[in-house]
Amino acid sequence: MVDTTATPADAETEARHAVPTQMSPDALHTMAEAENRFLRRFRRHRLAVIGVAAMALFALLAILAPFVTFHDPNGIDLTVMRQAPSAAHVLGTDPLGRDVWTRLVYGTRVSLAVGLVAVSIYVTIGVVLGGLAGYFGGRVDMLLSRFTDVMMCFPSFMLIVTVAVILPPNIFNVMVIIGLFGWTGIMRYVRAQFLSLREQEFVLAARCVGVSSGRIVFRHILPNAIAPVVVAATMGLAGAIMTESALSFLGLGVQEPMSSWGSMLQDAMSLPILQTMPWLWLPSAVAIAITTLSVNFVGDALRDALDPHMSLG
C-alpha cells in the first residue's frame, strides 16, 4: 500500500492492528493437552498433505492430459469394444472401444473445471448478498435474509435436477446450475460476520476518520470475514464435484462425446456390465471418491488452521 497521505491511513493501520485474533492462547494449555493438540494437528496435517498431493496430481493430470494418454478420448474403435485392461489399453475399453484411462484423465478436466467455476459463482453470490445484507442491515437485510431462508428450504438436489432438465445439458449450464444453488450457507455466514464486525471499534474508528464505505467493506470488514469462506469454498468444491458427477450420471450433465466421471458410471447401471466388466466403472468411482476425500481433508485442515471455533472436534 502506497497511500501515506495523512491521518486516515494511520488511523486505518491502527484500527487494523486492533483486530482481535481468533487463536486461543496456548499458554493456558497443560502439557498433556498440548501434546494432544500436537497429535491432532499432526494427524490432520498428514491427511491434509496427502489431500494436497492428490489434488495436485489430479490438477497435473487435467493440465497434461494429452501427454499422459495415448489414445484419442473420443476415438471410437469398434474392433476393441469392452476389452479388459491390457498393455495397449491400461484400463481397458468402453462399449464404443474408447480407451478408459484416456477418458478418465479427460474427465478430470471436467470435474475440476465444473467444481472450480461453480464454487466461484456461488462464493461470489454468497459474499455479495451476505455483505449487502450485513452491511446495510434493516430492510435490505430483511429482504435478502428471507429470500435466503426460502432458498434454503428447497431440497437443493431436486431443484438442481429440475433446472438441469429445463436447460440444455452441457458443461456450462452444469457449472451455472450448481453455482446458483450453493450460496445460501456462505451468504448467512458473511452476513453474520458483517453484522458483528461493522459494530466493532476498528470499523467505527475508520468511519470516524472519514474512510469511505467501499474502503471499509473491502479493507476492513471483508478480510476479517474471509477465512471461513475459504473453508466453506473448499468443502463446497468437494460437493460441487459430487453434484456434477451425479448430474452426469443421470445424463443431465456433461454430454457425450465429452467424458465425465459421472457419465462413465452410467455403464454400471447395466447389471451384466456391473458384474463382469468392473474396469468400465470402477476407475471413475474411485476417482470421484479420492478427489472428494482429498478436498475434504484439505478443507478440514484449513478449518482447523484458520478458525478453531468452527471445528467439529
Binding site: L47, A238, I288, T292, N296
Partner: peptide, 11 residues
C-alpha cells in the same frame, strides 16, 4: 466418517 462423507451416495 470422512470416507462416508466424501463418497457420493450413488457411487
Amino acid at each position: 466418517a470422512f470416507v462416508w462423507i466424501s463418497t457420493p451416495g450413488f457411487v
